[in-house]
Amino acid sequence: MIEVEALTKCYGPTRAVDGLTFTAQSGTVTGFLGPNGAGKSTTMRIIVGLERPTSGRATIDGQRYADLVAPLQAVGVMLDARSVHPGRTAFRHLLAQARTHGISRSRVDEVIEMTGLESVAGRRAGTFSLGMGQRLGIAGALLGDPHTLILDEPVNGLDPDGVLWVRGLVRDLAAQGRTVLLSSHLMHELALCADRVVIIGKGRLLADASVPELTAEGGSLEDAYLKLTSDAVQYRGRSATGSVVPITGVTR
């Protein structure tokens, strides 16, 4: 279970995360949504101890991430597919991670097989496509067989086959009683694999509800998302003629 309580993170005068509170329960897939710059990645980095919150706290099964004795075996983390030294092979990258916890070489081979990277495990990561990088990131998250998984945009760059695989993977992990927190911009995908959805905008909580609750009014999850975040979008594109692109999802 991941608990985020009144979490605030300021970068100078900017409040990237602003009093955010939510819980990701065990045995469920919690989708984490929000427009670009809403504070999703910052929140995830704070949960795994890469950043310190300005105030508030984030715990995993009651413990701060930095206090975990065996972090990889408690929490699997994939924050960015480009987290590998380009000159290192996929196998060596995973092996170095495994060695910090005394995880065996055979478990490294196991996660390579689970993510379908057998044929490229000996290749340097700098030659990987985005999708292969994602698979390597997921392999790293699974390495310690953790009870909690935190995945930032895991399907980004994956082929349809890979998207289907991730969907099945996170459903299975939750079915085994594990906690999965997963961010994505693909509404259709989240509607299929998430039990609950936490939506944030400008660092604040906009909604924390189950997928059926959000779609109760008859619209899709995307409609509900666009409606909720319409005031919280910081970066909005314009059409070629200069007018703001209308949000069709809300009126449809």
């Binding site: 972090p71 990889l72 987290s83 380009p86």
Partner: peptide, 18 residues
């Protein structure tokens, strides 16, 4: 600097948060 060129530090310091 090897940790910081490509974000390897994320993998490294989530494994060793201390």
């Amino acid at each position: 600097t090897g940790e910081y060129g490509a974000g390897t530090f994320r993998a490294t310091f989530t494994a060793v948060p201390r």
